[in-house]
């Protein structure tokens, strides 16, 4: 299981950010060929991102590329350039039809085969930026085994909902709940949209607390300063870690002794609670203590 608390967008035509983004220690990077790149720079950005990927110095980050939408003429060229260069996944904007995921899966398979990359290795992160995309989130998330996360849009989605973004985020509340539900049903990660007000640290902290409580696994990031705040909110407290350790230790002991039931602090604990405790330890960076 990979932590995806923060996935930092890096403008695809900016060498400085592309080369240094990983130094801010996000869990993942999104090298952006879409909105961050002007139309007339698409060709140069594609070459630049490909070569930065080939160099491959990204620390421990999960490396993904946001390609141009499947309704543009760029997406296949984007894939041809970046998939053979070595990436963990593709972030696809404006997904609203499960059939597109099937087409994307086939196209990725062709490229992987030609490039000698294990079939199915390239994961897919779907941006759902329209009402239709959110409505069909579960179908989209299950349309291909490659889909590993779904992400709601921010600006585009609120425009499609005929509203606008507020400080409270009221307009996205229902969408976020639907998205987590679809993600859990499909067995993929739920990653949140960006927080656009880059100097509003308190607002960010509040929003991250909210989306964590809803069940999100992490958030897209547009400024490196947002990373430590998001990690802080997603990192379990000492008390949570200690409790999780006790639960996992008891589960291990029960498994070794061939017992089905687990008892912690005099109370019976069932399997979902053990799973949650394991996840707490993973989030705390203690994955070596996890049972499975």
């Amino acid at each position: 299981m990979r932590l995806r608390r923060t996935m930092l967008y890096l403008p695809g035509n900016n060498p400085n950010m592309l080369l240094r983004g990983h130094l801010f220690n996000p869990d993942g990077l999104v090298l952006d060929l879409e909105d961050a790149v002007a139309m007339r720079e698409k060709d140069a950005a594609r070459i630049l991102v490909r070569d930065v990927l080939r160099q491959g110095n990204f620390g421990t980050c999960e490396v993904t590329v946001r390609i141009n939408g499947m309704d543009t003429s760029y997406w296949k060229e984007d894939l041809e350039a970046v998939v053979p260069a070595g990436i963990h996944g593709i972030r696809v904007p404006k997904v609203e039809d499960p059939k597109d995921m099937v087409l994307l899966d086939e196209t990725l398979s062709e490229i992987e085969t030609r490039a000698g990359i294990p079939l199915g290795k390239t994961l897919v992160f779907c941006l759902l930026e329209t009402a239709k995309g959110i409505w069909r989130a579960y179908e989209i998330a299950t349309a291909s085994k490659r889909v590993t996360a779904i992400i709601p849009g921010g600006e585009d989605l609120t425009a499609d909902l005929r509203t606008n973004r507020s400080a409270e985020g009221t307009e996205l509340e229902g969408v976020r709940k639907m998205l987590v539900l679809a993600a859990r049903a499909a067995g993929v990660d739920a990653l949140d949209t960006v927080f656009p007000r880059i100097t509003d640290d308190e607002g960010l902290r509040k929003e991250v607390g909210f989306i964590k409580q809803l069940g999100f696994d992490g958030k897209s990031v547009i400024h490196p300063n947002q990373i430590p705040i998001i990690h802080d909110v997603f990192t379990p407290t000492e008390k949570e870690i200690e409790k999780a350790k006790r639960i996992v230790a008891a589960a291990k002991e029960a498994a070794e002794r061939g017992l089905g039931a687990v008892s912690v602090d005099g109370r019976m604990v069932d399997r979902p609670v053990v799973k949650r405790a394991e996840f707490t330890l993973i989030r705390a960076g203690l994955s070596e203590e996890v049972l499975s």
Binding site: L19, D43, A44, I47, L48, R50, D51, V52, R54, Q55
Partner: peptide, 24 residues
Amino acid sequence: GALDLILKARTEAALARYRGGDTA
């Protein structure tokens, strides 16, 4: 202050544009 890999990527893009008649 471009690293070699950036210089190479920019050279490739400029040459491709020159060849394609794109004078951006």
